[in-house]
Amino acid sequence: MRLFEDAAELASMTGQEIGVSSWHTVDQTQIQAFADATLDQQWIHTDPEQALAGPFGATVAHGYLSLSMLPYLASQVYRVRGAAMIINYGLNRVRFPAPARVNSRIRDRLTLDSVTDTANGRQLQFHHLIELEGSEKPACIAETVSLLRS
């Protein structure tokens, strides 16, 4: 965990990797809970028996499950001491190059792309590379925008 004293110290890291989260195992219980929450019950996510004969040889996490893990994984990478809050503001680009098979491990490699001062606070643009253990391709690549308020 990297602790920044204030938004200015974080901004000094623009264009640099902030850090890497711990590995997180995506198990069938989490995949099923996500399917239940989103009502996306496609068999490649929820039916382990049918998925054995499917294109991935096992169930796979929803791409949006990998995406939804960004706040959790990024919270392991950095914190800004002087921040009242950091809220999700949006996404600019998202891709899912490789499926995260059940019981695979993912982690977030986080880079700060830009910081822009706005009337509502500092807008932070991050590049997230959700690495998939044992795979040359990541599970997710995302460009996120957050709003930091001090």
Rank of each mutant, 00 (worst) to 15 (best):
H45F: 01
F4A: 00
A53T: 12
R79P: 03
Q28T: 10
S21C: 14
L70Q: 06
N92C: 13
L67F: 15
N92V: 11
V60D: 05
Q28A: 05
A61H: 04
N88Q: 07
S22E: 15
R109M: 03
V77I: 13
N120L: 10
I44L: 13
I86V: 14
I87G: 02
T29R: 11
Q76V: 07
R93G: 06
G90C: 07
I86C: 12
G19S: 06
E17F: 05
R2G: 00
F96E: 05
R109C: 12
V115C: 07
S68T: 12
F4T: 00
Q41N: 10
V26W: 01
W43M: 12
T59H: 03
Q32H: 07
T29N: 06
S114W: 01
P99W: 00
Y72N: 12
S21E: 14
N92F: 07
A119I: 10
A11R: 11
L10Q: 04
L112S: 02
V26N: 00
I86D: 11
A100P: 04
L3D: 09
T59E: 10
L67T: 12
R101G: 13
E49P: 06
A53D: 15
D108Y: 00
I44N: 01
D36C: 06
I18V: 14
A98S: 14
R79S: 11
A11D: 14
M69Y: 13
T25H: 04
W23Q: 08
I106D: 04
V80D: 00
P99N: 07
A51Y: 00
D36V: 09
L52V: 15
V115Q: 03
T25M: 11
P71G: 10
I31N: 02
P48W: 01
G15L: 10
I87Y: 01
N88C: 01
Q30P: 03
G19F: 02
L112C: 03
Y64G: 03
Y78N: 00
L112R: 03
P48D: 10
F96S: 09
D27Q: 03
D27W: 08
S66D: 13
E17W: 10
Y72F: 08
L110P: 05
R2M: 03
I31E: 08
A11F: 09
S68M: 11
D36Q: 14
F56R: 03
G90I: 14
S104A: 11
A119N: 05
E5N: 07
E9D: 06
L3H: 02
A58L: 05
F96C: 08
R81A: 13
T118H: 01
I44S: 01
L52S: 11
S66E: 09
V60W: 00
Q76D: 10
A51G: 14
P97Y: 04
A7W: 00
L10S: 00
Q50R: 15
L65C: 12
G90S: 06
G63L: 11
S104P: 04
W23Y: 09
A33N: 06
A51T: 08
R93N: 14
T46R: 04
L73C: 07
A7M: 04
